[in-house]
Simulated assay, not measured.
Amino acid sequence: MFDYDSELARYQERLWGALDIRPGDHVLDVGCGTGLTTRDAARAASSGSALGIDVSGPMLARARRQAQAEVLHNVDFVQGDAQEHAFPPEHFTWAISRFGTMFFSDPVVAFANIGRGLRPGARFVQLVWQAADRQEWHTAIRAALSGGPASLMPAPADDAFALADPDDVAGVLTAAGFTAVDVVDVREPVRYGPDAERARAAVLQLRMAKDRVSGLDAASAERALDRLSVTLDAHGSDDGVWFDSRAWLVSARRS
């Protein structure tokens, strides 16, 4: 299983810096993955609660095991799609998401559904990726696996960048019933592993890499993987393999 917590450690800090969760709060974590953000929220909301929702059963199984190991009694996880899940009405005082809101089939419907679970005035703070061409991790890895400049490749149809336009994000949230929308440019590197060898193993767990390599014959796949190793090695440093990236930190209030 890909370690998104390690990859996104710098963004975890930026998200947490934008929050002010108090002991009595009730927090909804959308697209919680293995639950790091949910568990952090549960610790901050010590007399309240935190609920993480995600579509991935294996990730949620890990989240539950870790919460049990950390003896957190005010955290829970549910498998489901936040676009249609029946949240308790006007229950949560915060909604948060670390790159977990870009994959909805209908963002307006999804954000309106999340909003119904929030108390009036509650804040919704999320991180979403900016455009694909602003992500060095995306362009460099695609170029390595494809054997050519990323600018010459077809544009990716990737839901990860579905909220890359800040005006669209603001419009979607407003249409879903949110106010005071604020979109801030955030730039942090992402980490794929302590060295090139382990970074390669991590990258090959990602869909963009698996899909590309699986479509190649054996000789072409070997050349692609060699190019990937060279690229990862070039991005190595004393504390790991890093690529530049950019995101939007989006905050809004439930009306």
Rank of each mutant, 00 (worst) to 15 (best):
A9S: 09
E136R: 13
C32A: 13
D168K: 12
S237L: 07
D185V: 11
V125K: 04
A150E: 13
T231G: 01
N74Q: 04
A140V: 14
G215E: 05
L163D: 00
S151A: 15
M1H: 09
D3L: 05
D226I: 05
Q66Y: 05
L249E: 00
S214R: 15
E188R: 11
F161K: 09
A86I: 04
F77K: 06
L216I: 04
G147Q: 08
F77G: 04
L232V: 04
D239F: 01
R14N: 05
P89R: 13
V190H: 02
S229W: 03
W94R: 07
W94H: 14
A201C: 08
A252P: 02
F77N: 04
A140G: 10
A18W: 12
A201Q: 11
R116F: 07
W16E: 13
V27D: 03
D238C: 01
T93A: 08
V181Q: 03
G24W: 02
I21H: 07
D217C: 06
V184S: 13
A63N: 12
T231A: 14
F178I: 04
R14F: 02
V30N: 00
M208V: 10
S46W: 00
E70V: 08
V27K: 01
R191E: 07
Q135M: 15
R64E: 14
A209Q: 04
S146N: 13
Q83P: 04
A140F: 07
G17I: 11
A143H: 09
G80P: 09
R22L: 12
D165F: 08
I114V: 15
M208N: 03
W129L: 07
M1T: 10
D3V: 02
E188H: 04
D81W: 05
G171F: 05
V230Q: 12
I141T: 14
Q126R: 03
I53P: 00
Y11F: 13
A122Q: 06
G48C: 10
L127F: 11
I21C: 09
Q79F: 05
Q79G: 10
S49L: 02
Q66F: 03
D54Y: 01
A175Q: 11
R14E: 13
A201E: 14
A180R: 14
P107L: 03
R191L: 10
V186K: 09
L232M: 06
A110L: 01
W137L: 09
G33C: 04
W129C: 00
M153P: 03
G57P: 00
D168I: 11
A180W: 08
R207C: 07
G52R: 02
D226F: 06
A144K: 01
Q79V: 11
A112V: 06
D133T: 08
E222T: 12
S49F: 00
M208P: 06
G171V: 06
D29Q: 12
P166V: 05
E70D: 15
I114H: 06
P120S: 10
L8M: 13
L206Y: 10
M1V: 13
A170N: 02
M153F: 09
D167C: 02
K210F: 12
V125M: 07
V71A: 14
A219D: 15
A143F: 08
G147V: 08
P166Y: 09
D5I: 03
R134P: 05
A95L: 08
I141L: 15
S47L: 03
R227W: 01
R98T: 06
A202K: 03
P120M: 06
G17W: 13
V55H: 06
A67Q: 01
L249C: 03
S151R: 14
P149A: 06
G236S: 13
E188F: 05
V55P: 00
D54Q: 00
